[in-house]
């Protein structure tokens, strides 16, 4: 691709340097503070970390595409929960139960279709009304969550299928099923964004929408495809996660949109669009999961973890702003 400049290298390497720093810090701190016998960098622990990264990670990849496009999607957490309910509940329907294990792929299909449809609704509204994606998906976040509650009230929706659990808990070449899905999604979306016309147009639209329109790129349909894609990925994330757990609470997936956005931003994607990378988002997802696990490892509670992640996010954005300043010629604000 384009000639790499030092600044770009710094920007794209930063998240990985941060991960290495986290690993070193928690390994050393773990020696003194940890309650556990195991070392932090224990191989199984790292494999588990990747697996636990998968639900947010798969969504964050979709969020990267949406944000490169210059949009945002706040409804992914609710889409995640609704797809999970469809997945588990559909397997209890009589005709599905009659199908035995053939019900599994069909249930997956139902769940994924749910995600695509919810995404398409977002995309159509953004395209046809021209309302900002933030507002549209804020509305659909509430609306889709409402559907989740309508489906089964405050009750959890449960269904355990042992074949499904076995599949989800399988390890192929050492990696868990969920990890394979995460890596597969990262690879495909990376190819999409760097190698295809659709992906390159996404960058162009996010970078300078007017120029893209002037060049004849059809921005509305482009948005629609990407919202369908993130809906699909949110549902895929649910499918991967709930195949194993077998029970959905109506509040599941809440704040997932914010965790996904946090990971994307940590990975260096611009909120205003036009710049970002799928691979760096993977780095952002891993960095957050490392922080959670690492702080837990040295005995911090959840509240502290959230506080630290919040502070780090702000610090990262401040650093990014400083790096991107054009120097003294810039207008004072």
């Amino acid at each position: 691709m384009a000639n790499f400049k030092r600044k770009d290298l710094v920007k794209q390497g930063a998240i990985w340097a941060f991960i290495v720093a986290e690993l070193i810090f928690f390994s050393i701190a773990g020696e003194f503070l940890s309650v556990s016998e195991k070392a932090f960098m224990d191989f199984d622990n790292m494999l588990l970390l990747l697996k636990q990264s998968a639900p947010i990670g798969i969504i964050a990849v979709g969020m990267t595409i949406i944000m490169v496009n210059g949009n945002i999607d706040l409804s992914v957490g609710a889409t995640f929960a609704l797809a999970a309910i469809v997945l588990l509940d559909s397997m209890t329907w009589p005709f599905m139960q009659a199908m035995g294990n053939w019900a599994i792929p069909l249930a997956w299909l139902f769940a994924l279709a749910t995600g695509v449809i919810l995404g398409a609704i977002n995309g159509l509204i953004v395209w046809k009304t021209g309302v900002d994606a933030f507002i549209v998906t804020l509305g659909s976040m509430l609306g889709y969550r409402g559907l989740v509650f309508i489906y089964n009230g405050e009750q959890p929706t449960s269904h355990l299928n042992w074949t499904l659990v076995d599949f989800a808990e399988a390890q192929f070449l050492g990696l868990h099923t969920a990890t394979w899905f995460l890596l597969g999604v990262v690879l495909l979306c990376w190819l999409l964004m760097t190698r295809t016309v659709h992906g390159r147009n996404a960058y162009a639209i996010g970078n300078n929408r007017e120029a893209a329109v002037n060049a004849g790129i059809r921005v509305g349909p482009h948005f629609l495809w990407n919202f369908m894609l993130i809906g699909f990925l949110a549902a895929l994330s649910a499918v991967v996660f709930y195949s194993e757990s077998g029970s959905v609470n109506p509040n599941d997936g809440m704040l997932y949109e914010l965790w996904a956005i946090t990971a994307v931003v940590l990975g260096g994607t611009k909120l205003s669009g036009g710049y970002g990378s799928i691979i760096s988002t993977l780095g952002g997802v891993i960095a957050i999961q490392l922080l959670r696990k690492g702080l837990g490892h040295i005995g911090a509670d959840t509240e502290t973890v959230n506080l630290v992640i919040g502070l780090i996010l702000i610090a990262v954005l401040f650093l990014d702003r400083q790096l991107n300043r054009k120097g003294k010629e810039e207008l004072r604000t």
């Binding site: 691709m1 384009a2 390159r200 147009n201 960058y203 162009a204 970078n207 300078n208 120029a211 893209a212 060049a215 004849g216 790129i217 036009g274 710049y275």
Partner: peptide, 14 residues
């Protein structure tokens, strides 16, 4: 122009 993209991508934008 889209300044994050390459010269070629800008010239053939769309």
């Amino acid at each position: 122009l889209a300044d994050e993209l390459s010269v070629a991508e800008n010239i053939y934008l769309g």
